[in-house]
């Protein structure tokens, strides 16, 4: 974390990959439900998810995956520097999944803001599961500290 100071510059093509979660547990999904206030039974009630909704089990909130992925970005660009972050939930995330995030800087621009010149970094971020399937495909922009 706080790696802004270790980056001498932000350059297009720089990458960062992290394991976001290893073998996601139902307990973590339930913790996220409690912490986020999102108690939709598809995520919290195995009987409902299987027998009523017809899924193989409960699955993770999309926002849990997004939160996990956000850690990679804030670790890389520094705290409080994220400007935008969002993406598409491509596949469901199931208990037992191991998720890895792969981020890459695709643009760096200098802009004038409040009388100072700052760098805006734009990145793509793919979160893939243990089978290589993309579960969350995101973009983000940040204003990391200039070193």
């Amino acid at each position: 974390m706080g790696s802004a100071s270790t980056n001498s510059s932000w350059s297009v093509g720089a990458t960062k990959s992290d394991v976001l979660v290893k073998e996601l547990t139902r307990a973590q999904i339930v913790m996220y439900a409690g912490a986020s206030g999102d108690y939709i039974p598809l995520h919290t009630d195995e009987v409902y998810a299987k027998e009523v909704a017809g899924y193989p089990s409960v699955f993770a909130h999309g926002m849990l995956t997004m939160g996990l992925a956000g850690v990679l970005l804030t670790d890389w660009f520094g705290d409080g520097t994220l400007r935008t972050f969002g993406g598409r939930f491509r596949n469901q995330v199931w208990p037992g999944d191991t998720l890895t995030g792969h981020a890459e800087i695709v643009a760096v621009t200098s802009v004038e803001e409040n009388g100072a010149t700052i760098e805006i970094v734009e990145a793509t971020l793919d979160v893939v599961n243990q089978d290589g399937a993309v579960v969350f495909q995101a973009t983000a922009s940040a204003a990391p500290a200039l070193s």
Binding site: M1, V21, Q28, M31, Y32, G34, A35, S36, L64, G67, L68, G70, V71, T74, D75, D79, G80
Partner: peptide, 23 residues
């Protein structure tokens, strides 16, 4: 704290005032 526990984020600036004030 509940949320970062669920996510597994250990960044102190979300829970430790001193760490955050240092930034």
């Amino acid at each position: 704290r509940s949320w970062i526990d669920a996510i597994g984020d250990t960044n102190p600036i979300y829970v430790d005032d001193d760490a955050s004030m240092a930034t």
